[in-house]
Amino acid sequence: MDSLQTVRPPPGPSEPGSDFARLSKKVQAAGLMARRPGYYALRCSLVLALYAAGWTALVLVGDSWWTLLVAAFLAAVFGQVALLAHDIAHRQVFRLRRASELSGRIAGNLGIGMGYGWWQDKHTRHHANPNHEDLDPDLDPDVLVWTQDQARASKGLPRFLGRSQAFLFFPLLTLEGFNLHVSGVRSLADGALKNRVGEGLLLLAHFSAYLGALFLVLPPGKAIAFLFVNQCLFGLYLGSIFAPNHKGMPVLRGTDRPDFLRRQVLTSRDVRGGRFTDIVLGGLNYQIEHHLFPSMPSPHLRRAQAIVRGHCRELGVSYLETSLIGSYRQTLASLHEAGAPIRKARTA
Rank of each mutant, 00 (worst) to 15 (best):
F160Y: 12
F73E: 06
F276M: 14
V271T: 08
F170K: 03
D63Q: 13
G339S: 07
Y328R: 09
Y328P: 06
A89T: 09
V70E: 04
F160P: 00
F94D: 00
R22H: 14
A89I: 05
E199K: 00
T56E: 08
E176K: 12
L335M: 14
H181A: 10
L204M: 12
N285I: 04
M249H: 10
D134Y: 10
L84D: 00
D19W: 10
F215N: 03
R309D: 07
P130S: 12
Q120F: 09
G117C: 01
A243T: 11
S154C: 08
Q148M: 09
N195T: 01
P10S: 13
H290C: 07
F170Q: 06
V271W: 02
L218A: 05
L84A: 04
L172H: 01
Q305L: 09
A345F: 07
Q287D: 09
L266C: 11
L193A: 00
W119V: 00
F73L: 06
D259N: 15
S323F: 11
V27S: 03
P220L: 07
R152S: 14
R22G: 10
G239Y: 08
L46C: 08
L211F: 14
A189D: 04
G198H: 04
I342A: 03
H336V: 03
P341E: 01
E321I: 14
R275F: 13
F73Q: 06
S14A: 15
W66N: 11
P11C: 12
M249I: 08
R309P: 03
S183A: 13
I241C: 10
F170L: 15
L320S: 15
V317E: 06
P37H: 05
S45L: 10
L216I: 03
L193C: 03
T56F: 11
Y116F: 15
Y39C: 06
G79W: 04
L144W: 08
R105H: 10
D270H: 09
L233V: 05
N179P: 07
L23D: 09
L4I: 14
A306W: 08
G200F: 00
P219M: 12
F260W: 15
V81R: 00
K122P: 01
A338I: 05
L211R: 08
Q150C: 05
V182L: 15
Q305G: 04
P141R: 04
P137D: 09
T322K: 02
R302M: 11
E133M: 13
V182A: 14
P244T: 02
L216G: 00
S3W: 15
L84S: 01
L211Y: 15
A49D: 06
V93N: 02
G274D: 07
H123F: 11
F73A: 09
A52Q: 09
Y328D: 10
R98W: 13
Q92A: 06
V77D: 01
L202W: 00
L168D: 02
A82I: 09
A205G: 01
L292V: 08
G212P: 03
A52D: 02
A243E: 02
H181S: 09
D142T: 15
L173R: 00
I106G: 02
N195Y: 02
C44W: 10
H206R: 05
S323L: 12
F226E: 01
R95W: 11
I112P: 00
E15S: 13
V61E: 02
S295H: 14
